[in-house]
Design a protein around this nucleic acid. Sequence first.
DNA 1: GCCAACGTTGGC
DNA 2: GCCAACGTTGGC
Length: 172
Amino acid sequence: MQREIKYWLLKSEPGCFSLQDLKECPDGIEPWDGVRNFQARNLLRDALKQGDGVLFYHSNISQPAVVGLARVVREGYPDATALDPESAHFDPRATEKTPVWYRVDVQYVCSLPAPITRQDMRCHPVLASMDVLKKGNRLSVQPVTRQQWQAILSLAGLQDPLADCSRHAVQG
DNA sequence: GCCAACGTTGGC
DNA sequence: GCCAACGTTGGC
């Protein structure tokens, strides 16, 4: 049996890498690299799977918000920026054999018609419990429940772009 | 710009 | 293993 799709929230400072930047990548695909936090690393390496849904969140701006959707198109593999002395994310501990840091590839799916702000989320019965709202939470890769994913879509007025119609096909 | 919260480092 | 110091994150 196929693994259930899971959902994640990925934070990015738009001044560094925005949803628009992702959209403009070839095929809308870009490695999610440079993450240098062990808890987030573990999620990138072990938990995010191909086909998983991603809420793209803009942080560290005047109106932090979920601004769009993406999907995981390649599962955890070594983050080569850690091996590159020229990279801002270079880590001398990393080697080919022990990469230390991992990344996934994500693909742009769509922008939300309007950003869903923290205030929007706080006021929503399902979204109010999202990790991203918790004080002091700095984790840049966070799990999102299916209910939260659907609530975001519902607020945005979108159909689930990752829904697999064949799953609901009537047999016989 | 402020500052609370957190993760990491390193001396002991 | 403890914990103080430090750097970073990120909302406000």
